[in-house]
Write a protein that binds this DNA or RNA. Structure first.
Lengths: 334, 334
DNA sequence: GTGAAAGCGCTAACAC
DNA sequence: GTGTTAGCGCTTTCAC
């Protein structure tokens, strides 16, 4: 790798001039600029980002921690962030917490040494604590919130989405509607549960604890919860399920099939988050769709706002959309 | 951020000693080590990786370029690489080429400035050319090969996998078997086509160009190709399809549904690469499964081998597995 | 076992 | 407009 010294030597100028010619062309005479450019070209010169960052105390780098890159929703978030960062000339360090606070803590530590100028994180339950090691770093929380008052947030209207899902089921005539959501220390789970409650109450139905389960966001958890709910005696088992997470929805659908329940004749299901899987399974799934890629884009834009010194943390909420497909219908007989 | 100077000052030693105490504890007296450790702890000291890398001319960083992070296969590759790199204390820079040689070129340029110690890449058609700008960097090509003689490769047995898929269909009694694969400048597409050929020839069937289509790896391409093939008159249209890529398989299945063809009664389908979607769709898909995560792990291990100076490039090939589910059956009537 | 000093590659004052 | 110089934070000779 040739350095700026080599370029300067070849162009017969000082390193300072070479540096200027390359990063601030207007500060240099035309002829010089051309000579330097040519020399750089010839040597295949690429500035050493480490040295530059060290000197400028600016890495043009951001950190991104998602909870599960194998989950298509998170992959889309990541792509939205990364595409947007790249447009602005920033490089993204992507880490995976795998929903584990300890892995998140390690990612944050690693990140810290690389001096990112900002951080976007899909929080776990430990985030608020872990972020204390980075007191002055601009942070945007994505999809979920940790309660950290310093951070900006970009989320969807989980309460509204859950309400829409539940209303849809109620409107079809369902009265015993089961709920499966994520861990209670994750904001999205809490909010979706709240929306479900709201809708039931508004319809004069009383939320019933036996019909509610919470799991850890994985397919297994969804399938276990659904199996429990659907194994209740005929008059008591729910005729419909609202599942507050894409992975758990897969589990719930498989559990229903396992039990020989037909969808939607014997059981209606609404999932949260759309995906290709939801569209192509049989029957295609009724879902609350979220603008995943846009969430990522907005998070990145929020972060750049903070970097430019746009003052206090902001809270952006995008809306969701109920997409009615064929996994929901009126209850067969009650 | 406190620097090693602060730590040294607090521990009342020189920066040299502080540095040694932290990175080479055995070179320092016990008492000193403890004082330094304590000071570091107290200040929440985290070494500045940039400065260290600059000095040591070693970034403990690798680059990874995948073709499409939204494709679960590539997400798994990425996770395999990243998990393995992390175990070894290396950080991974992840980029996406989106199957576009120009985006790949940009990723490589960006990467170059960050001085990764090695690169793992799922090549596009431009890779071989682009890598010339990094003549001395250890490179592992993952899943596909660009023909670059310098690079190690980690791939699967595409010929064998395709042959197994085709043999399976032939064994069921199919005679008109359609093929849909990726671009002809991508090695996996070429090899899968070769395996398909082999199998047909071995069975005394002659490969027939009208039954073969190639696309750009996307769902759309699969659906377009399948629509063409399946719209042929009844006696000519294929009774089975081998689709050489997961995304295009989705497209093919949807196209078949669109045309009112039942799977497997009217049409058998074998896909390449397993996925959750393949398992949960109705009917569950017969596929050639690839060890995606392991591919990533092995690629990373190969790279570390090269970093340790393990000499010449190696070529590792993992095997695939035919998983028979319910999307294949005997032809209904011929 | 410890400290002084040099230098990785770059940019930003500061002179001229 | 251009060159000289200092220094970002770290590790590593080289003395002692």
């Amino acid at each position: 790798m040739s350095s700026i010294q080599d370029v300067a030597a070849l162009a017969k100028v000082s390193t300072a001039t070479a540096s200027r010619a390359l990063s601030r062309p207007e500060m240099v005479a035309d002829g010089t600029r051309k000579r330097v450019m040519k020399a750089a070209q010839q040597l295949g010169y690429q500035p050493n980002v480490l040295a530059r960052s060290l000197r400028q105390r600016e890495t043009r780098t951001i950190g991104l921690i998602v909870a599960d890159i194998l989950n298509p929703f998170h992959a889309l978030l990541a792509k939205g962030v990364q595409d947007t960062a790249e447009e602005q000339g920033y490089v993204t360090f992507l880490f995976n917490s795998d929903e584990q606070p300890e892995k998140e803590a390690r990612a944050i530590d690693t990140l810290r040494g690389h001096l990112p100028q900002g951080l976007i994180v899909v929080p776990t339950s430990g985030t608020r604590e872990h972020l204390k090691t980075l007191p002055n770093l601009p942070v945007v929380e994505l999809d979920r919130v940790s309660g950290n008052p310093q951070a900006s947030t970009v989320t969807v209207d989980n309460v509204g989405g859950a309400r829409a899902a539940t209303d849809h089921l109620i409107g079809l005539g369902h009265r015993r509607i089961g709920l499966i959501v994520g861990q209670q220390d994750i904001s999205t789970a809490v909010e979706r549960q709240a929306g479900y409650h709201d809708a039931l109450k508004a319809a004069g139905l009383s939320p019933c604890p036996e019909l509610m389960r919470s799991g850890q966001h994985r397919e297994d958890d969804g399938s276990r919860a659904a199996t429990e709910l659907l194994s209740m005696p005929a008059g008591q088992r729910p005729t419909a399920l609202f599942v507050g997470n894409n992975e758990m929805t897969v589990g719930a659908v498989l559990a229903a099939r396992e039990l020989g329940l037909r969808i939607p004749e014997d059981l209606s299901i609404v999932g949260f988050d759309d995906s290709r899987w939801a569209q192509t399974m049989l029957p295609p799934l009724t879902v609350i769709a979220q603008p995943a890629y846009e969430l990522g884009v907005h998070a990145c834009e929020q972060l750049f706002g903070l970097l430019r010194g746009a003052g206090r943390p902001a809270h952006l909420q995008l809306s969701t959309e109920l997409i009615i497909r064929h996994s929901t219908g009126p209850p067969h007989r009650s």
